[in-house]
Design a protein around this nucleic acid. Structure first.
Lengths: 220, 220
DNA sequence: CGTAATGTTGAGCGCATTCAAGCCGGGTGG
DNA sequence: CCACCCGGCTTGAATGCGCTCAACATTACG
């Protein structure tokens, strides 16, 4: 949350985000089709969001961690259009959207904040579209790992070590690859000495090589 | 714009959207890196938006037509992160974003409207991610055609006939395919009697077959 | 401890890509 | 008016990346 708010404004915002909810691993915070009432700010835990096509296929649209907001998809039709599933036990702030709208009419900083959160999500998805539309398997996985570790680092975790909270299949769904391809690509990175992988525990040995994969240098 | 507004509210909104700008075919409305000041509502014409990766590849993130709003990507960092290019001569409303924020504090319906526009864009992008992540070439193109014709129909154009304002390459970039694949897939649809294609003029002969391609029936 | 879920690896295949050649249509200048 | 050119489009042939199918290994969990 931004700074420079008065005591009274802070209290009112606190009031909006007062409600808590815990979500056990493997259960959904909300589902496609459910009535939309609130946005959720993740306090602890890790989520995936996914959309489904009419014929059963589904696509992971993102992985969310502490400090991130989910549920924005529900605003437009008053109903959610994707599922949010906890990949580990989680706790979220429940933020009733009508209260957010009400309060953001009075607190400019909050209004601005809400707009930025939504815009950030749009920009993030642009990046995913670029990944899905134009990258090869290795570039996708490298991009994914760098993005994850960067976000974890911003939260005080290691720059080089991370634990994947999702399966290979979920990674594959997000990256537009099959789980076997994800597994093979991990193996290739290991062979090349770029990472160490022990199941879901990943240690990045050479960040620069990962970056080179993401950003292929013209090889003249 | 929603209904049920007072005369005075309408006047104030009119004031915000008063400024116009014309954009010639092939020129940009805004570019990646430019300062963000305004959203743009398309009055006439047709745009593409595209993002570029560091190494020159680019990805069309969407095609926009009359009544749609572009520029939402700029809110989060006060700078645009994609290019908006007119694919035919166009006219847009320039809507200064600080004025929008100001007015949407006072006019609830406008606030709601802005939120919905942003949420709609997020949901649209989810659909594109599903397409890019899990569909085959024919499904992608069929989905694309159905989406385009549906949006055109909502604007009073034919349900079965359309003129593509973009090149095969731009379609390919949007769909995560090469232009040759787009061309071949069009040819296949023609062979199967699903569409007629004469350059950029497309006539849909059998909407149901297109829908079947998008939604493959289990063939037991 | 046994079973199911998850992950790895191999072999073969197929779809989309790459590379290349040629076509079509629109615009320009002789 | 026609010859020419150029960008956009189509089509063919060969290649390769990621997929499918399958077997097996490993881990999590009741």
């Amino acid at each position: 949350m931004p700074i420079g708010l008065s005591r009274e404004e802070l209290d009112r915002i606190d009031d909006v985000v007062a409600a808590r909810r815990t979500v056990k691993r493997g259960t959904t915070l909300f589902r496609n089709g459910e009535k939309f009432t609130s946005l959720f700010a993740i306090r602890t835990g890790f989520f995936k969001t996914c959309v489904a096509s009419e014929d059963g296929r589904d696509q992971v649209t993102g992985f969310q961690m502490a400090g991130e907001v989910i549920g924005l998809d529900g605003i437009v039709n008053d109903h959610h259009t994707c599922d949010a599933v906890a990949l580990e036990d989680a706790e979220v702030c429940v933020m009733p959207f009508d209260r957010i709208e009400e309060l953001s009419r009075e607190v400019n900083a909050l209004q601005r904040h809400v707009h930025k959160i939504m815009s950030r999500e749009i920009v993030r998805e642009h990046g995913v579209m670029l990944l899905l539309g134009s990258m090869r398997a290795e570039e996708r996985l490298a991009t994914f790992l760098l993005n994850l570790v960067q976000r974890l680092h911003a939260r005080g975790f290691s720059q080089s070590e991370l634990i994947l909270r999702m399966t290979r299949e979920e990674i594959g769904s997000f990256l537009g690859l099959k789980l076997e391809t994800v597994s093979r690509t991990f193996s290739k990175f290991v062979e090349e000495g770029i990472v160490e992988v022990k199941q879901r525990h990943v240690r990045i040995l050479n960040t620069d090589m990962l970056r080179d994969i993401v950003n292929p240098k013209p090889c003249n």
